[in-house]
């Protein structure tokens, strides 16, 4: 463990994410569009669930989507670094490999949580009012989920070779993960086969937790949500570390 190395890796990633302003703006615009346009557009067709509007219903789902994309994209930067050589500087440094994974995980999680917070700040726009406790709990949850999702990103990054692969990742992994969770469709509406897929998706339980904390609705028992989310966080972070340590 090398705390200063973890810090500088974390800082460097955040600097780079912050400087890529186009990407940041694009991500936030995407979230706002989903929330506002989809929320308004489908409002009429939405049979109220638990007395909330469609915008309110998808609000936690959009937070989930925002951190999903931000975390995975941040971790995928490893592929870029491998392609342009910088990863080598990192891998030959006299620091434990685990410091690199920890730094990368924390930066991805920080970055995703920051973006999630921007969306969370839109709560009043969709008419969700939050207490301080709810805000704090949501932040904590976002951090936990982001760590897991960054782990997924690192695992993907250690498996794909070229940066061109990222578009494929978005379409093959991220979009299905987003759609096949309860982010935008209430679970009871869906046919059984789709329910089965959704229940196999780890993001479902993370979104369920976010929904419970922000608007008080949920599909699964709290303990199941929490157990799966925390368990997955541990498994995926460990797997990511293991795969990354084997690099070069």
């Amino acid at each position: 463990m090398d705390l200063e190395a973890i810090y500088i890796i974390w800082l460097r990633d955040l600097k780079i994410n912050w400087r890529d302003r186009g990407n940041l703006i694009g991500a936030l615009v995407r979230s706002v569009l989903w929330l506002v346009v989809l929320g308004l557009g489908l409002r009429a067709g939405f049979r109220s669930v638990g007395g909330v509007t469609f915008s309110q219903y998808i609000f936690p789902g959009i937070i989930g989507m925002t951190i999903l994309f931000a975390a995975v994209q941040s971790a995928i930067s490893i592929v870029w670094e491998r392609e342009f050589g910088f990863l080598r500087e990192l891998l030959i440094a006299p620091i434990p490999r685990t410091s690199i994974t920890i730094g990368k995980t924390l930066s991805g999680a920080t970055w995703a949580t920051l973006q999630g917070t921007v969306v969370l700040a839109l709560a009043p726009v969709v008419g969700v009012s939050l207490t301080v406790t709810q805000v704090l709990l949501t932040l904590l949850l976002m951090l936990l989920i982001s760590v897991t999702l960054t782990g997924i990103g690192i695992i993907i990054a250690s498996r794909i070779v070229t940066f061109q692969g990222f578009g494929v990742i978005v379409n093959v992994i991220l979009m299905p993960m987003f759609f096949l969770s309860t982010a935008i469709f209430p679970l009871p509406w869906l046919p059984d086969w789709l329910k089965a897929i959704i229940m196999a998706n780890p993001l479902t339980y993370a979104v369920d937790l976010l929904r419970l904390v922000t608007i008080g609705l949920y599909d699964f028992p709290l303990m199941l949500d929490l157990g799966l989310t925390i368990g997955l966080c541990i498994i995926l972070t460990t797997a990511a570390t293991f795969l990354f340590v084997k690099e070069i």
Partner: peptide, 13 residues
């Protein structure tokens, strides 16, 4: 200290 044939600088910093 190492200087390689290919750059290992971070070109965004």
């Amino acid at each position: 200290g190492l200087v390689f044939q290919d750059t290992t600088l971070d070109d965004r910093l």
